[in-house]
């Protein structure tokens, strides 16, 4: 049988792991991206911060705002 302090430690660490996983998932879900697929079959994630990606993201943002 585990010593009582071990049980508490394991419980606390499992909660912190859950919280960390939740934060990771949330960060991943909130990630913004611009993904383009070409006729050739190639696919590209335009790097955020480039003028092309910013122009696309800005137009997409305005479209979403308009609803």
């Amino acid at each position: 049988m585990l010593k009582p302090h071990r049980v508490v430690l394991e419980k606390v660490s499992s909660y912190t792991e859950e919280a960390a996983a939740f934060m990771r998932r949330r960060r991943h879900h909130r990630r913004e991206f611009v993904r383009i697929r070409f006729r050739s079959g190639a696919e590209a994630d335009l790097p955020v911060g480039t003028p092309e990606a910013d122009r696309i993201a800005e137009a997409a943002g305005r479209l979403i705002e308009l609803g």
């Binding site: 909130r30 990630r31 913004e32 991206f33 611009v34 993904r35 383009i36 697929r37 070409f38 006729r39 050739s40 190639a42 696309i56 993201a57 997409a60 943002g61 979403i64």
Partner: peptide, 11 residues
Amino acid sequence: EDLDSAHVARA
């Protein structure tokens, strides 16, 4: 390249 489709995700 010829554009086929695009997916833009915002918050």
